[in-house]
Design a protein around this nucleic acid. Structure first.
Lengths: 330, 330
DNA sequence: TTGTAAGCGTTATCAA
DNA sequence: TTGATAACGCTTACAA
């Protein structure tokens, strides 16, 4: 690979001049500029970004931490982040953390050594004190670490309320909830939203709240149990779509008809909900927008580190599909 | 951030000595080693990888190019690649190319400037001549660029033959095929495999081959058309699972019963096929293994550039699920 | 066993 | 308008 010195020699100028035309700053005679550009072309010269990074102390890279890209919520998020980082000339690093705290810390250190310019994190285990020594900007998604760390979230509690109220509005009399992992703040908020609506109902009973972990399998099993024990449940608010699909499959295996016997509503709005039979009613998050806003805010924070903390909350939308249906009055 | 010089000063040694204990090479007295390590700890010193990269000319980063991480085939692949690269201390860069040639070239150049050590590419547009000036090792996935560029693939043609023969074996009399984009070699091979089996059948007609693009939507539409025109089709081999799910949905909208009236088999074995109703019979690729083998081979190629080109072909497996069913004799 | 110093490829300051 | 040169933080001959 040719270096700036090779170019300088060929064009009969100093490296400083080459650098000037490269970066388009400082005065440079238009004729020598041409000479330099020709030399660049002739040598197929491309500046070495590592050397640039060393000098500048920044790498033009940003990293996204997700628990697992295989979880269908994250590909769209990742895509959004990559789209905007790429648009601004940044390189996109993806890290799967498995919600493992040590792994997160290891990544954080490794990438800091590489002068990565900023982090977007979906994490349940990170909190402020782990970030003390991190000097690059960080933005948390979906879950808020602390008021000092910028975030992009949705109003989970409100969305959960809306989901539950919707089930009531279509005539469900006994509405259960399958929770996400209680380590995740969004999951806690969704539970709260559910409780906001049903807490004082005469029929309400804590048996109607069952624990899941946001994964398909747990909900498949937990649901079979729940629906076998409580045959009077006619509405189910599930903390995320992946688990809601598990519910659909569990009901299928029990020969229960959805939505005739049971209405099911999920949360997230992932594309998977479009391909099930019945298709899934859900509270849709603006996934792409969450990712792209997060990336934009991060890039602003990188350019203006003096800027204050930013918290942005986006809106969710109820999407009616075929897994819910108005109950006929008895 | 502390530098190696700060450590050297605090430990009362030269930077060379610090470097020696850091990299554990060269002689260094065990007592001074302790002093150095204490200084490192005291200053929370972490070596700057950018400086290291500049010196070494390599960055300990590898990149994966996929058309779109939102396509459900790729998250598992990406996960596999990230797992092994991470295990060997490499950083994982993800690029969405949209099958856009210019974008691919731009990424390739940008990452080369960053001294990225190797590339894993899923691409239909790249061929050898675009790679002339790339000096880092490259490995192509799923599609073979040329015999000079290492690859990890599956036997698409054989898998397609197996799929088609399976439909015959369960009694399908007229078997159609929905193709992938003919720009992709895997797609062409799957078509060939289909033809291998049906070409000389008396019923065979070119109308039974319809063009898709590996996406859900195209197949949804194309299928409605096909099934309306040719009501005698009783078997359908679809070039990938995503399109096969489109077929399921199209049949649903036509009130056709799968598998009673029509058996459908896909290709890929993505998790999506487990959540549809009916679940999808398919030719399963070992997706995770493809990714992890590719990454392992790439790392070998990075360590031993003198090594020759490697082509590896993995096996596919027929998975019977609920979208296919033995035809009763008339 | 340790230190000195050159070099990796840039950018930016200062002087000319 | 241009050029010399120090600096970014590290590694590795080579010398001591």
């Amino acid at each position: 690979m040719a270096t700036i010195r090779d170019v300088a020699k060929l064009a009969n100028v100093s490296t400083a001049t080459v650098s000037r035309v490269l970066n388009d700053n400082g005065y440079v005679n238009s004729e020598t500029k041409n000479r330099v550009n020709e030399a660049i072309e002739q040598l197929r010269y491309r500046p070495n970004d590592v050397a640039r990074s060393l000098f500048k102390g920044s790498s033009k890279m940003i990293a996204l931490f997700v628990p697992d890209i295989k979880n269908p919520f994250f590909p769209e998020l990742a895509r959004a982040v990559e789209d905007v980082t790429n648009q601004y000339g940044y390189t996109f690093v993806l890290c799967n953390t498995d919600d493992n705290h040590e792994k997160e810390i290891t990544y954080l250190n490794a990438l800091t050594q590489k002068s990565v310019d900023g982090f977007i994190m979906v994490s349940s285990t990170i909190c402020e004190r782990h970030l003390e020594h991190v000097t690059s900007p960080i933005i948390s998604l979906d879950r808020r670490f602390s008021s000092n760390i910028s975030s992009v979230t949705v109003n989970n509690r409100k969305g959960a309320r809306e989901a539950t109220a919707y089930l009531q509005s279509i005539g469900c009399k006994k509405i259960a909830h399958i929770c996400g992992p209680q380590t995740a703040s969004n999951s806690k908020d969704r539970l709260k939203g559910y409780l906001d609506v049903v807490k004082y109902e005469a029929w309400f009973h804590s048996d109607f709240i069952v624990a899941g972990d946001y994964r398909f399998k747990s909900s498949y099993e937990v649901t079979k149990d729940l629906l076998t024990k409580h045959k009077d449940i006619d509405g189910l608010f599930v903390a995320n779509d992946l688990m809601a699909v598990g519910v659909l499959k569990a009901a299928e295996s029990l020969n229960m008809n959805i939505p005739e016997q049971l209405s099911v509503i999920g949360f997230d709005g992932i594309p998977l909900g479009l391909t099930t039979t019945p298709s899934l009613t859900t509270i849709q998050q603006p996934i792409y927008e969450i990712g792209s806003r997060a990336a934009q805010i991060l890039l602003e924070l990188i350019d203006h580190p003096e800027q204050q903390v930013i918290h942005e909350e986006l809106e969710v939308t109820l999407i009616e599909r075929d897994s819910t249906k108005r109950r006929e009055e008895a």
